[in-house]
């Protein structure tokens, strides 16, 4: 087996006095789809945000695609990464946000072409072709010239997915992408992800509260609590025969609800 595409080694992360991770270790293999479930405040989103470089770390190392994410080699030792290194590392990663974070002053098409044109120097024509292709993929070919505020939540999130894909990341981070949606809009977004992983292979890390979706799509499910992985394994095993009491309690509470 090749080296993992993502590796957390002894990672420490605090917000002020609150310790999120004290000594966190975690690996993801290439083309693996990993769901992270668990109670809120357990550090699930922080994990993704650290990978996307939206949050720094207070200790330990993270490797992404064979290189250190938050550190870089300099004169024979590892020093905190500068913005150039972070810029390079971010090219591996793409993120879809819970609250979409679309650019409200830009058309849907422009939301998608902005980064390829500015960051990768793709020509306008090529960027627009790519945007149209991605919009067709997420079923919004007719919305290219609409503005985000004219779209439903589900449509916004599908644009969010298309926007992230336009940068062709090898690792896709999905941060509770359906949590802000009305229940009837959840499936149209999840269907996009279902189709996506059918067509192409991705390394995907998703934080989700949609248990049936995690069970269906993942290669591995991790149950998170208090900044640590309490239990992980194949979805069928986690969802049907969890070993840990905390996992059982969490899943019971969820299944009891729905």
């Amino acid at each position: 087996m090749s080296a993992p595409i993502i590796e957390f080694k002894n990672v420490k992360k605090c917000f002020g006095d609150t310790v999120i991770f004290s000594d966190f270790n975690f690996k993801v293999e290439e083309n693996e789809i990993v769901s992270i479930i668990g109670p809120s405040g357990s550090g699930k989103s922080t994990l993704l945000r650290i990978l996307m470089t939206l949050e720094g770390i207070d200790g330990g190392y993270i490797n992404v695609a064979g290189e250190s994410l938050w550190h870089m080699p300099w004169q024979g030792q590892y020093v905190p990464a500068n913005s150039k290194h972070l810029h390079k590392m971010r090219n591996h990663l793409g993120m879809v946000f819970q609250h979409f974070n679309l650019f409200p002053h830009m058309t849907v098409k422009r939301n998608i072409t902005e980064a390829p044109m500015r960051v990768k120097g793709v020509s306008r024509q090529d960027a627009e072709e790519l945007a149209e292709k991605l919009l067709a993929l997420v079923g919004l070919a007719d919305k290219a010239d609409s503005y985000p505020n004219d779209l439903s939540g589900g449509q916004k999130q599908r644009v969010g997915i298309a926007r992230a894909l336009a940068m062709k990341p090898s690792i896709l981070l999905l941060d509770e992408i359906t949590s802000a949606l009305d229940p009837e809009l959840v499936d149209e977004v999840l269907d996009v992800i279902r189709n996506l992983v059918k067509e192409e292979s991705f390394t995907m890390l998703l934080v989700t509260h949609e248990m049936y979706f995690a069970r269906e799509i993942s290669d591995r499910v991790c149950f998170f609590d208090k900044g640590a992985i309490v239990e992980e394994g194949e979805p069928e095993i986690i969802f049907t025969a969890p070993k840990e009491e905390r996992t059982k309690a969490f899943l019971n509470a969820y299944i009891g609800q729905s």
């Binding site: 939206l54 679309l102 980064a115 926007r163």
Partner: peptide, 13 residues
Amino acid sequence: KGQWEASRALNLS
């Protein structure tokens, strides 16, 4: 804040 985060996630300078 989300606008800044989306910009960073898209690797905009």
